[in-house]
Nucleic acid binder design. Structure first.
Length: 406
RNA sequence: GGGGGUGUGCCCGAGUGGCUAAAGGGGACGGGCUGUAAACCCGUUGGCUAUGCCUACGAUGGUUCGAAUCCAUCCGCCCCCA
C-alpha cells in the first residue's frame, strides 16, 4: 500500500494524529516538503521479548510513515542495553548478558514485523558504531553535554531527590542514543513521552556535529489493563501481541471505560474522525460503553489474529463471562486417583491451585465446583466416582477434567 | 577515608525478648453485584490431609528456657562530610 505522493498537509494529518509532542512543531513539514523519503528512527531495548500493545503504539506510527513512502530505521539497542535506559526507572537496571540480548533482539524483530513493512525497514544494531568508540571518542561526545542539562531530566531529579542512586554510567545513555541518530542520519526519531529528553539530546548532538537535527516525535504512553500504570510486563497489566485471541479479547474488555477512546486512537486503524465521533457518542450516552468496548476488542484481535479468530473469541467470551457456561474445550488432565479423593490435592494436580492450602481456602470460600455443584466448605474428601471425568471448576473461568491415566 | 542510616511475607510497611505465621495498606485470588475480567461491597492471602509439625523477618554464628526483636562478624543498599 504505497501512496508516496500524498500532499504534505495530508501526510501531516495522518502522522500527527494521536501523538503527544512534535519538537519542533514546524520542522516535520519542512522535511516532508523536500519530497524525499525520510529516515525515521526508533531505538528499542532488547529487554522485553514479549511485545505488547504499548510497544505497538510507536510501531504502528512507524508503519504509517512507511505507508507514506518513508524509511524506518529500527535500531536494536544491543550496546545500550549494557547500560540500561534510566528513563522512567527509579532504580538502576541490571545489565543483560550478550546471549540474552541476542535472543531478545531476534524475538523482538520477529514480532515487530507483524506491524512493520520489512521492505521499508532498515535494521541496525547500535553496537556497530558504539562498540568501536574509544575513550577519546567518549570524551569528545560527552563534552557536548553539560551536567546541569543532564540533571534536568525528570527521572534523574526525582531519583536524586528521593535518595535513590544514580550510577555515573547512566548519564551516558542519552549520549549513546543521541550518537545513534548521528550515525544513521535520522530525520525523525520516535519514542514514548518518557523518551523526550533522549530524543532532544539527539537533536543537540546532531546540530553540534554539523548535521540537520532530527525532529522529535513522541507518543503517549499506553496505560495497561489496570488503567493506572503504563503497560508493562513487569506490572502484569499488558496485552501481548502474541496473546491468544480469547485472552486478548478478554483483556481488552477488562480495561476501564475511561481508557477506551485512547485505545481506539493508539491501537486501532479507526480513522481520526470516526474516533472523535465515537468519543462524543460515549460522552452523550448515545453509544453504549459495552458495545464500544466489544467493538474495540474485536478490532484489536482482528488486527493480530484476523476477523475469524476475533469472532470466535467474542463467542467464547460471551459463553464464559456473560452466560457463565463451561467452555467445550476443557483441558483433560490425567491423574491417578485414590478411591477417596482429597479435593485440595486434586486442585493442585489439575493446576487449578498453587498449593493444597490455597485449594482448601478456595473450597471454603465457595469458589470450587465439581460437575456444576459448589463444594461445601470443609468437604475436602469426596468419592472417586464423583470427580473422575467430571468438570472441576475454580472461580468463574478456570476448568479442568481429571481423567484416568492410560 | 570519616560519620550515620537501613535490609521484614508478592510489594510497601508496622513491629525492640514470649500474647508474632508477624498490625496496616497495595496487589492477587474467591464470593456478591454488573454491560464488563470496570466501580463498589464481603471474604481469603507461608507449606503440610494438620487441634499438630515444618519453613520464614539480608547471611552466619552467639546470648537466652524462649529472638524478627539482644550481641558479634559478614553481605547488600542509602545519606551526609571529605
Amino acid at each position: 500500500m504505497r501512496r508516496d505522493v500524498l500532499p504534505v498537509s495530508e501526510q501531516l494529518r495522518i502522522l500527527t494524529s494521536g501523538i503527544a509532542d512534535l519538537v519542533p512543531e514546524a520542522d516535520l513539514a519542512k522535511k516532508l516538503e523536500r519530497n524525499r523519503p525520510l529516515r525515521v528512527k526508533l531505538g528499542v531495548d532488547p529487554t522485553a521479548p514479549d511485545l505488547h500493545l504499548g510497544h505497538a503504539v510507536p510501531l504502528r506510527k512507524l508503519r504509517q510513515f512507511q505507508d507514506l513512502g518513508h524509511t524506518v530505521v529500527l535500531i536494536i539497542g544491543d550496546f545500550t542495553a549494557l547500560i540500561g535506559d534510566p528513563s522512567g526507572r527509579n532504580t538502576t537496571r541490571p545489565p543483560l548478558s550478550r546471549e540474552a540480548i541476542d535472543a531478545n533482539a531476534q524475538t523482538y524483530v520477529d514480532q515487530a514485523f507483524r506491524i512493520l513493512d520489512p521492505e521499508r525497514t532498515e535494521l541496525r544494531r547500535n553496537s556497530d558504531w558504539l562498540e568501536p568508540l574509544g575513550f577519546a571518542d567518549i570524551l569528545r561526545l560527552t563534552s557536548r553535554f553539560t551536567v546541569a542539562r543532564t540533571l534536568e531530566r525528570d527521572d534523574f531529579q526525582k531519583r536524586y531527590r528521593e535518595g535513590i542512586g544514580i550510577s555515573l554510567h547512566e548519564f551516558l545513555y542519552p549520549v549513546a542514543q543521541a550518537y545513534d541518530s548521528v550515525a544513521i542520519e535520522a530525520d525523525v526519531e520516535l519514542g514514548g513521552t518518557d523518551q523526550l529528553f533522549n530524543l532532544l539530546a539527539g537533536r543537540e548532538l546532531m546540530e553540534k556535529s554539523g548535521m540537520e537535527p532530527q525532529v522529535a516525535l513522541t507518543l503517549p504512553l499506553l496505560e495497561g489493563t489496570d488503567g493506572v500504570q503504563k503497560m508493562s510486563k513487569s506490572y502484569g497489566n499488558y496485552i501481548g501481541l502474541a496473546d491468544e485471541p480469547f485472552d486478548m479479547f478478554g483483556k481488552v474488555m477488562s480495561i476501564p471505560d475511561s481508557l477506551m477512546v485512547k485505545y481506539y486512537r493508539l491501537c486501532t486503524d479507526m480513522p481520526v474522525d470516526e474516533v472523535d465521533a465515537l468519543e462524543s457518542g460515549l460522552a452523550s450516552g448515545d453509544v453504549h460503553p459495552n458495545a464500544a468496548k466489544r467493538d474495540l476488542a474485536r478490532r484489536i484481535v482482528t488486527l493480530y489474529h484476523g476477523a475469524r479468530a476475533a469472532a470466535a473469541a467474542e463467542d467464547r467470551f460471551n459463553a464464559v463471562f456473560v452466560k457463565h457456561e463451561v467452555p467445550d474445550d476443557v483441558p483433560e488432565v490425567p491423574v491417578r486417583l485414590e478411591d477417596d479423593v482429597y479435593l485440595p490435592g486434586l486442585l493442585v494436580a489439575l493446576g487449578l491451585a498453587p498449593s493444597s492450602g490455597e485449594g482448601r481456602r478456595l473450597i471454603d470460600g465457595g469458589g470450587v465446583k465439581v460437575a456444576g455443584v459448589t463444594v461445601e466448605p470443609h468437604a475436602y474428601n469426596v468419592a472417586r466416582a464423583r470427580v473422575e471425568g467430571q468438570i472441576v471448576q475454580v472461580g468463574k473461568r478456570r476448568h479442568a477434567r481429571p481423567v484416568a491415566p492410560d
